[in-house]
Design a protein around this nucleic acid. Structure first.
Lengths: 147, 147
DNA sequence: ATATTTGCAAAAGGTTTGCAAGACG
DNA sequence: CGTCTTGCAAACCTTTTGCAAATAT
């Protein structure tokens, strides 16, 4: 992501285009994997000289709120963040080994929502769907190791 | 769940059938909704006289590990627990209002796994699927209020 | 100029741990 | 009786907050 493009997104959100925000965005775009707040912090700290962890949290919250980035569910109860190019309804295939994320659109839950509604009488409002596994590369590496 | 039945489950897991464990299990069976550790604690505290919150956590961990209970994902980063009668592969329809849980089996993800594997070259190992909304009762109540 | 943003230190809050005392089988 | 459990207090660790100083527009 160009610096200018990041600034544009921020202004559209009514946020000032500060170096800290631009670095956070650039960091998340640069990675093809999800990161925790402190991982983002450690990466951009080097380049910014100094930035507080609370600031990173504040920025990540703003961006997640604005749906510029996505929170990833994790069993360790930590928050992870990922920049998705895709703004349509979609889900993530998350690699358990390298944490890379691949989007996929098909979720087939529209039909399921109808089934649940008619069988239970309730109303479906949202859903969480995340597929975990090994990406192509890690899958290959693992089978080589096994040999 | 009968007390004796709970004891049987515990013994099969190689765990001693202590009053604390039995109460935790009975509490979760009695509720048709998911509970946080401290909610379980507050409920069984009354009957046990005294029990520490760490003990509740330890018991919930053991039971979740053994898949006797399920952890529920929540946006507030707290852990919630629910006893599922159903041991087959299934998912939960969670009511956002009263937190009641309804199982459903259909998830249609077998096909999706294949699609992801063939399009990305990766391997699907697991998935998280949870549907949120309003159960029949809460859905009804809400529309009454709206009137 | 002024509202927004940030750093710092400290608090919050859920969860975990260490260890001695107690209970189950 | 020996091993598994539990209570208690304290630690942990991620995330949040308060407020004064700095910065973007």
């Amino acid at each position: 992501m160009e610096r200018e493009q990041g600034a544009l997104i921020l202004r559209r959100l009514g946020l000032k285009a500060t170096p800290r925000r631009l670095e956070v965005m650039q960091c998340l775009v640069g990675e093809r994997m999800y990161l925790s707040a402190d991982e983002v912090w450690n990466r951009i700290r080097v380049r910014l000289g100094s930035i507080g962890l609370p600031t990173v949290y504040r920025i990540l919250d703003e961006l997640a709120e604005a749906r510029v980035i996505t929170r990833i569910f994790s069993a360790d109860r930590k928050q992870y963040f990922f920049m998705c190019a895709n703004q349509e309804h979609h889900h993530h295939f998350v690699c358990d080994s390298c944490r890379r994320v691949v989007d996929f659109a098909q979720c087939g839950l529209e039909g399921l929502a109808g089934e649940i509604a008619s069988s239970t009488g309730g109303r479906v409002l949202s859903h969480i769907l995340q597929v975990n596994g090994l990406c192509a590369e890690c899958s290959r590496t693992e089978s080589e190791v096994a040999r």
